[in-house]
Design a protein around this nucleic acid. Structure first.
Length: 466
RNA sequence: GCGAGCAUAGCCAAGCGGUCAAAGGCGACGGUCUGCAAAACCGUUAAUCAUCGGUUCAAAUCCGAUUGCUCGCUCCA
């Protein structure tokens, strides 16, 4: 029984889709003003596991994942670079999908862009103006929080006790608003500004939050099952999405809200000023593998803070190498004929453990433990020669089930060695047969320098790349 | 000022009142295997679960205080 911690109710709830077997899922994607960092990818990896697990549970999924390609920063940086916003965002969008694919994240069904949905945003704003949830001030349109009594139901912020602008990031006197918490739906732009769209209420550009309301409702309907994103979007972004959407439709927006916690680096906030800020490509450039990064991002449940350290990433690298070796060896091992039902029962038990862990609000830590327990069990059985030929495919199939969600084994690539190396390996085998170990070790060292590791197992010689 | 969360072995971390002398991974050490390695396996390493007090037949788990850390209060995944 799948349960989620719903941020809206602050409770662990049994998941029940609105329409029997269909799940409509919206995940907040990136704002494409730069390369995405590993904190972003923590959230997107969580979204990927959520997506994969919903499919694993047999749901028919419609998954929308937006790209926000217009906001103040994009407009300003594009202007500074003398580019249109499309020209400015294009390379970041391309890089984003590259990283996304490299991390083994499954592409969403629909990946809408904010700039392609301005008309839908305008419609919502018109509706809000009509029904009194929005007002015009100095040419811009603001959401009227006083007209939406539920405001704050997601973030549960006690606005009465708060100092507006306490974080020092907002100039609260800058805009003429009825209430300091009212937020912009549409910002007036001058006629000579390159980025702007015409609307019945004036030329302007959308406020930050309206794009998600527009795209979510367009593709998933006024009410849908799950809305997910990073914890830092809970307020104001998601709170405001709820206000806008429910203010316009008077129907509940998303039923379940899931928020992934932040990633820290060496116990501290990741920030450029601390010098501990890493994009995905920074780590790849340091020589780390995408699967190790993915493993690390999965090693802590999404709703807990994850402490990213290089020591742990090195460990993740070891772990995934061991897992991959395990699968490769199992495929090749010379096993005794027959069947070991005991082993198959254990494999099934670990798969059940895995599913129970995932059902429990996607507890990936425990889910990974189940995988490791299976690996140990099979290794022991293989070493004791009680794993049989007929167990092999069963276990490999079980591994596939784990990996349909975890995605950490990677493709079983059939690599080819060039003939020179092939010849050296042959020469080494010959030398070993002749007990010429000096030559044999010489060749092993030589190949080691070229990144090829040789292992002499009882099933014969194996090689792998470092 | 207001609010939320966290504190478990060398490191990362699960845990949500009994089945916890606490899962799993990484690291380290010893052994088996090997010509030697590697891989694998077995074993060891290592936790009075931040501190103090309370509730309970029973607490890592609930309550309170203290200390430390992280985060939010309209840039953020």
């Amino acid at each position: 029984m799948l349960k989620f911690h719903n941020t809206l109710t602050n409770q662990l709830e049994e998941f029940q889709p609105l329409n029997d077997n269909e799940v409509r899922l919206y995940i907040c994607g990136p704002t494409v003003w730069s390369f995405a960092h590993i904190g972003n990818f923590r959230t997107f990896t969580f979204g990927d596991v959520l997506r994969r697990y919903l499919k694993f549970k047999g749901y028919k999924l419609t998954h929308v994942f937006n790209l926000t390609d217009v906001d103040d920063r994009i407009i300003n940086e594009a202007k500074a670079a003398a580019k249109t916003i499309d020209e400015f965002t294009a390379p970041f969008i391309e890089a984003f999908w590259e990283d996304f694919d490299a991390l083994g994240l499954e592409r969403p069904d629909i990946a809408p862009r904010a700039t392609h949905h301005i008309a839908e945003m305008i419609q919502i704003i018109e509706k809000l103006l009509e029904n009194g949830h929005a007002y015009e001030s100095d040419g811009s349109i603001y959401f009227r929080i006083s007209a939406f009594p539920d405001y704050g139901k997601l973030s549960k912020i006690n606005f009465a006790g708060n100092i507006s602008g306490a974080s020092g990031r907002v100039d609260t006197d800058k805009y003429d608003k009825e209430n300091a918490n009212d937020f912009a739906l549409w910002k007036l732009v001058d006629a000579d500004e390159p980025t702007g769209w015409d609307a019945s209420f004036g030329r302007g550009r959308p406020g930050w939050h309206i794009e998600c309301s527009a795209m979510a409702m367009k593709y998933l309907g006024e009410t849908f099952d799950i809305h997910a994103g990073g914890i830092d979007l809970k307020f104001p972004h998601h709170e405001n999405e709820i206000a806008q959407s429910e203010g316009a439709t008077e129907n509940q927006f998303a039923k379940v809200w899931l928020h992934s916690e932040h990633l820290k680096v060496e116990g501290e906030t990741m920030s450029k000023s601390l010098g501990n800020f890493y994009t995905f490509r920074d780590l790849i450039a340091k020589g780390y593998s995408a699967t190790a990064i993915r493993y690390l991002l999965l090693s802590v449940p999404y709703h807990k803070q994850l402490n990213f350290t290089f020591e742990t990433l090195d460990g993740a690298e070891q772990t995934i190498a061991r897992l991959r070796d395990f699968r490769n060896r199992l495929q090749e091992a010379h096993l005794p004929d027959g069947i070991n039902t005991d082993l198959q029962e254990k494999a099934e038990k670990y798969l059940n453990d895995f599913e129970a862990a995932m059902d429990d609000n996607l507890n990936t830590s425990v889910a990974l433990a189940a995988l490791h327990n299976l690996v140990r069990e099979v290794n022991t059985a293989t070493a004791h020669e009680v794993a049989c030929t007929e167990d092999r495919s069963f276990i490999l199939h079980t591994l596939d089930k784990f990996d349909a969600i975890l995605g950490i084994f990677g493709e079983a690539s059939e690599e080819i060695l060039d003939s020179e190396i092939e010849a050296l390996i042959g020469e080494r085998q010959e030398a070993r047969r002749n007990r010429n170990f000096a030559r044999s070790d010489e060749i092993r060292n030589l190949l080691g320098e070229q990144g090829i590791i040789l292992e002499d197992t009882k099933d014969g010689m194996r090689w792998k790349r470092k």
